[in-house]
Structures are given as structure tokens and as C-alpha cells.
Simulated assay, not measured.
Amino acid sequence: MSVLPLVFTSGWASGINAYAVVLLLGVFGATGLSDDVPGTLQRPEVLIAAGVLFLCEAVADKIPYVDSAWDAVHTVVRPAAGAWVGAVLAGQSGSLSDAAAALLGGSTALASHAVKAGTRMAVNSSPEPFSNVVVSLAEDLGVAGIVTFAIFHPVAASVVAATLLVAGLTVLCFLVSRIRRFLRRRAQRREERRLTRLPWPPPG
């Protein structure tokens, strides 16, 4: 069977939480629940690193503004992880070239990362912190559910992932004004911090 649906779904999920994807796939493979997971993802050191980083993301992702800083750092990490997972899955199955799988996984991860990061900027434009926790939990549960579904029903899961990606990009277009507001507020805070560091009264 073609590994294409699993690569696509893993790429979408990697754009939201790459560490959760690596951890879940590795656990499914290591426990024998799936024969489609390459041995590379099942290695103990990979599982431990993914688990630790997943816990770090679980905390950072729920703190206003820290989540956006974390997303900025992971603009490179998540697409790279999606590309790596895609290439590894393709190498395991032999039904898709590594380069094509890496391109598919990486580009899908980049698109879903853009949706996640943009949504977080819009959420951070509201003063209360609870929406960050709710959105973060929804993302974590969504990634866990989709990746688990993809292990047993890859084609159906890829359809769900594609639908969520299109819906997310559509919503992101409507959130542009809130994202601009967030960026202006962040720039204003930077300027305020800079002014507080200046000597007062100014030398002269």
C-alpha cells in the first residue's frame, strides 16, 4: 500500500506538534501496534528526546506570548521534522521516493505550522490567558487522534487532515486583522521596555 496518505497526515500533524508525531509513531512501532513505522523512529534515544521535547512544548504552548516565541523558533524545526518523518516513512515502504516524501511532508508541515502560528497570534490579541490553554489542548488531542487514526486508516485520516488544513488556512485569512494587532502590541511592548532602560532624566 502507498505510504503517501501517512506521509501527508504526519506532515500536517508535524506542523502543529512535531515531537508528538515522532513520539506517537515511535510508540506504535515499538509496541508492535504497527508494522509501518521504521526502526529509526522506534530507537530509545529518539523516543526519549521526543518525549522530553514534547513536555517542553506542552508547557510553552499554553503560556501567552511564550507560545508565539516558541512557534517562531519552530518555523524551521516543524517543516524539517515533517520532511524527515516523510523521508523515513518512504524509505521503510519503498513505494515513494525519499525526496518526494520529504517535499510532501515538509511542505504540508509548513502550511499547518503557518495556520497554528497565525491562530496563536490572533488568540494572543485577547487579554485573558485561558484561550491559550484551550487551543493548545485541542491541538494536542487533535494531533494524537489524527496520527492514531492514520496508523490504522491512513487514507481516511489524510482526507481529514486535508480538510482541517484547508479550513485552517481559510480561517487564517479572516484572522489577519487580529494578527496585525498582535504584532503592533508586541512592537509597542518592545519599545516600552527599551524606554524603561534609558537613563532618566536624560543626560544633557
Rank of each mutant, 00 (worst) to 15 (best):
G29A: 09
T75L: 12
L141S: 12
S34W: 05
P38S: 05
L169S: 00
T196W: 08
G105V: 14
L55N: 11
P38M: 08
W70R: 04
V66T: 07
L23P: 01
V22M: 10
L165E: 12
P44K: 04
H153M: 14
A13Q: 07
L195W: 02
A138D: 04
W84T: 15
G15E: 01
V88S: 15
Q42K: 08
P203A: 07
V73D: 10
G94R: 02
V76W: 09
A81K: 12
A111M: 06
L55G: 14
I63N: 09
V73M: 15
G94S: 05
H153T: 12
D61F: 07
R189Y: 00
A150I: 01
S131N: 06
I16S: 02
N132R: 13
V135W: 13
T170M: 12
S125T: 08
V134C: 11
P44G: 05
P202W: 04
R190Y: 02
A161F: 11
A69L: 15
A122P: 01
I146N: 11
S158T: 01
A100K: 13
P79R: 00
G32S: 04
V22K: 12
R194G: 09
V166P: 11
V52H: 06
G204P: 02
L164M: 05
H74G: 12
R181F: 03
A187V: 12
L25M: 07
G82S: 02
Y65R: 14
T148D: 02
G39R: 11
R120M: 13
V85T: 10
P38Y: 10
G11D: 00
G91K: 14
R43V: 00
A60L: 02
A20I: 06
V143A: 03
Q188K: 03
A138S: 00
L172D: 03
S10E: 14
V160G: 01
S10Q: 11
V66L: 13
A100M: 15
Y19D: 09
Q92E: 14
M1L: 10
F152N: 06
V77F: 09
S2E: 14
G142V: 04
G15S: 07
N17Y: 09
S34T: 06
L183G: 04
T163L: 02
A58P: 04
V155Y: 06
G15Y: 08
V155S: 03
V135M: 14
R120L: 14
V21S: 13
R78W: 03
V37D: 11
I16D: 08
A80R: 13
K62G: 00
L96A: 08
T170E: 12
S112C: 10
T170S: 15
G106V: 07
L23W: 03
E57M: 14
L6V: 03
G32V: 06
A122K: 03
G91V: 10
F8S: 08
S136T: 01
D71A: 05
R120N: 15
E45V: 04
V21H: 13
R181H: 07
G142P: 00
A156S: 00
S14M: 06
V77A: 13
D140N: 10
